[in-house]
Design a protein around this nucleic acid. Sequence first.
DNA 1: TAAACATATGATCACATATTCATATGTATG
DNA 2: CATACATATGAATATGTGATCATATGTTTA
Lengths: 135, 135
Amino acid sequence: MSIDDICGETRFDMSKVADVKEHLQHLIPDVAIERLSDTFKVLSDPTRVKIVFALLRSELCVCEIAEVVGMSQSAISHQLRKLKDHRVVKRRKAAKMVYYSLDDEHIIKLLTEGISHVREELHDPIALPLGERLR
Amino acid sequence: MSIDDICGETRFDMSKVADVKEHLQHLIPDVAIERLSDTFKVLSDPTRVKIVFALLRSELCVCEIAEVVGMSQSAISHQLRKLKDHRVVKRRKAAKMVYYSLDDEHIIKLLTEGISHVREELHDPIALPLGERLR
DNA sequence: TAAACATATGATCACATATTCATATGTATG
DNA sequence: CATACATATGAATATGTGATCATATGTTTA
């Protein structure tokens, strides 16, 4: 079967397609695909990314984050909820305040890899010493 | 200044907030934050993630991808456009067909890290030999 | 316990996004 | 060159998302 015959009405190269399908199922079940895309979705918003970068430097309470990011307390609180639901951040209560910090080492690696992609995309390096962690 | 005085009406610990702000600007400019979250946004959709996983196994034409993923040709084509715009995939034309393949090594690392996060989140390991590449 | 304050949350609205449908584009071939 | 076929794309629609506003919750302290 020639390569040009692969597509078209019911004329797939079934063995190839079946192989890829099986590979897909073996590699990662549909449920995990959902979870995975959800994980990326958490970092798909600039406000949340900013929050994570801020927390990379230091544990912060909600109003401090709002000040740093330049957004309302309510907006930040809503976003922190999402970050917490996805275990990206954790919180510690102290008196009236609630202090947030990063909860997952993998998030930093995710960010690092994401930046590598962006750097390649831009052909314009971004300074990024991500070796540091929460102080 | 006590820790309890940090928040409240105009009573931030300005030096701390200023430090984090500066850290944020130094680490990554706002423009890059946008690009970064955009990159994650590309992988925030299950259909696109499936496409990437399929292409991890083999270069595929549009109709093969549609068959593997189980979605219409049009839907796949729209998503491929987004993946291409973000340099996640590249294409090769051959006669009537257009073959897509992965275009960025970092994407695989991104997926790997994402899976690590999901795995941690689920407390339920996902099989994942991501060592392989395009054949 | 009343007031002040830090945070959380529900409702709303504007905007983004994914799929579908119809159709356009482009290429091979009878 | 007309037809078949592979892919791309614009419009329409349904659903999702993020910021805002108002307000609730919870904690401290006067």
